[in-house]
């Protein structure tokens, strides 16, 4: 459905995107995963016809984002990263406004939003500016959907939203996908990658890899061990000092380690005990998206 070919873009000499190419299929839930400043928003603004790329082309259903922008806009719902609805209009006024702008009515497409809207309907007389973060996010999604677009583009919809609302939000996206809507979504949070059909990992304007989340982690060539110890500060330092250890990355309650030559150091635990760590543990684990991202990032920086 979306075909992006060799998109490059820069602002005042700073590179924002460099030769980004990717395809998104119809009814796919596609994630763009990367930190702030990676180029996610720039890419989305190009896809939604709001920005003209310096190089490259994007087409959506064979319509070009530059030449056919008028036709395309009727078919795209866009939820920007910053809350961009009218703060001084109420919930229902905002929704009615967006429906009218797109030449439709709330009633006509209500079936698409009824699930989501039911969460905020008790507050429909409240001004949008007075809603909580989770409710603003749901209203913005309703407004992006009200003209029944084939594609919705959501820029970091879950940033700054609590974990409960985030879980609900992803459940809603799955339902919309079930209605046949194509979803392009971005997030800085790696743990959300597994909820997408396919993801593109992006960093400093370049795509590091595109695949199904399971394949990205499944094709990871290195064995990763989770090392545990009570004093993490000293644990990290002592692991870095060990010559058999290749990479050391703190990961929540453990430290993820790879070994040079991909070979586990049989004497590691003994070494840690000698260093005064009480009852350290090492466990071979399945790599996560973030492990892969870290590996790809350090490869990029060494290139």
């Amino acid at each position: 459905m979306i075909r992006a070919e060799n998109i490059s873009m820069s602002f005042n000499g700073t590179r924002a995107l460099e030769s980004v190419s990717l395809n998104v299929d119809k009814s796919e839930l596609f994630g763009l995963i990367g930190p702030d400043g990676a180029g996610k928003t720039t890419f989305f603004r190009i896809v939604t016809t709001l920005l003209i790329p310096e190089k490259g082309k994007v087409s959506i259903n064979k319509l070009d984002t530059v030449d056919d922008y008028r036709a395309l806009r009727k078919n795209i719902g866009y939820m920007p990263g910053r809350f961009s609805l009218y703060q001084d209009l109420t919930v229902e006024e905002n929704l009615a406004f967006y429906a009218t702008v797109f030449g439709t009515t709330v009633k006509e497409n209500y079936h698409l939003i009824s699930d989501i809207y039911s969460h905020i309907e008790p507050f429909k007389k409240r001004r949008a500016g007075k809603l909580s973060g989770g409710m603003k996010q749901k209203l913005a999604l309703c407004c992006a959907l009200i003209h029944a677009p084939e594609l919705i583009v959501l820029d970091e919809p879950t940033t700054g939203v609590d974990a409960v609302s985030r879980t609900e939000f992803w459940e809603m996206l799955k339902k919309l996908q079930g209605e046949g809507i194509t979803i392009l979504v971005s997030t800085p949070y790696m743990d959300e990658a597994v909820l997408c059909d396919r993801v593109a990992l992006i960093q400093k304007g370049r795509i590091l890899g595109i695949d199904k989340p399971g394949s990205i982690t499944g094709n990871f060539s290195k064995e990763i061990y989770a090392i545990k110890g009570r004093d993490k500060f000293r644990l990290i330092r002592d692991l870095r000092d060990r010559e058999t250890v290749e990479s050391v990355n703190p990961f929540g309650d453990s430290v993820h380690v790879t070994f040079s030559g991909n070979e586990y150091d049989e004497n590691l635990l003994e070494y840690l005990e000698d260093k005064g760590h009480n009852d350290p543990g090492a466990e071979l684990i399945e790599p996560g998206i973030e492990d892969v991202f870290l590996e790809l990032m350090s490869k990029e920086e060494n290139d």
Binding site: G34, P35, D36, A38, T159, G160, P188, M190, Q203, D231, K232, F233, R234, I236, N249, P250, E290, F293, L294, M297, S298
Partner: peptide, 24 residues
Amino acid sequence: DEPTGGVDPITRRQFWEMIYKAAD
């Protein structure tokens, strides 16, 4: 208060190492 939201994974880890050091 939400110290590392949106930061890249490498920087985030360097940040947590600073936190471990401060706690130490």
